[in-house]
Amino acid sequence: MEHSSLAGRIFRGVALTLILIFFMFPIVWIFLMSFQTNEQILRIPPRILFEPTLANYEALISGQLRTAAGNLQISFMRNLFNSVVLSSAAVVLALLLGVPAAYAFARFKFRLGESIAFTLLSFRFAPPLLVLLPLSLYYQELGLNDTYFGIVWVYQLIALPLILWIVRGYFEDISPDIEHAYRLAGHSWREAFTRIAVPLAGPGIAAAGLLSFIFCWNNFVFALILASADKQPVTVGALAFVTASGIQYGQIAAAIVLSVTPTLLLALYAQRYLVEGLSLGAVKG
């Protein structure tokens, strides 16, 4: 690195800037859009400088959408709340079920073990729409339609395989000797699991949890079919902005900013744990 020439460093800087602009531009543009009215957004040519307005956020938070065709009730805040509840509950449930299962798959060879693990993964192969039709019939029968529990359950199709397969790899990377050493020191296997295996697989569990949270958060079709308005997350709620008098770009932008914020904060917070501890190096191979 020290030997790189001035030209090389300038080139690297320019390249990094271009890549950064390429990836960040949509996010920045949406952020700017969220402070503009529909007229400001749609004028040609677009302008960087504008009179910022908080009208979009006010409309979202108050639930009153004013369009040319009149006032519309929207429940964006309710949707946002639903998203947080549904995604968090789904990830917590998937972690409770998936982490012990991943440990079992990593440590023990048992009959049909690989088949079970693969079946769980295969849930991700099927197009969700294919699953949804029979599922919605079952849900109606069971009374699970339009319940938080029903949606959290169906979200396991997204979260559980992801957590199982990512965390399993992390458990397999931990030398079994470390757990044997802890057991020989007089601890039960339960203690070895909770105090050795789970902390050491921590970064993997965090990564898998974060990833499945994002997948659940972004899911659209499950909640569209299986839930009614008051249980629907933001992804489905965003449909409300396509109104009779046109698409409300300003509100959509504001809604995106609000709905991306929790995931973004979570990712920034978890990033620390994702990197930390990946090179603990207590075992010499």
Partner: peptide, 20 residues
């Protein structure tokens, strides 16, 4: 008998220290 009830101390070739 489970390992924790055998009254055994063991040192491993790869040390097997608890990294955390």
């Amino acid at each position: 008998a489970p390992p924790e009830r055998r009254g055994i101390g063991m040192a491993f070739q790869n040390f097997a220290l608890f990294p955390h």
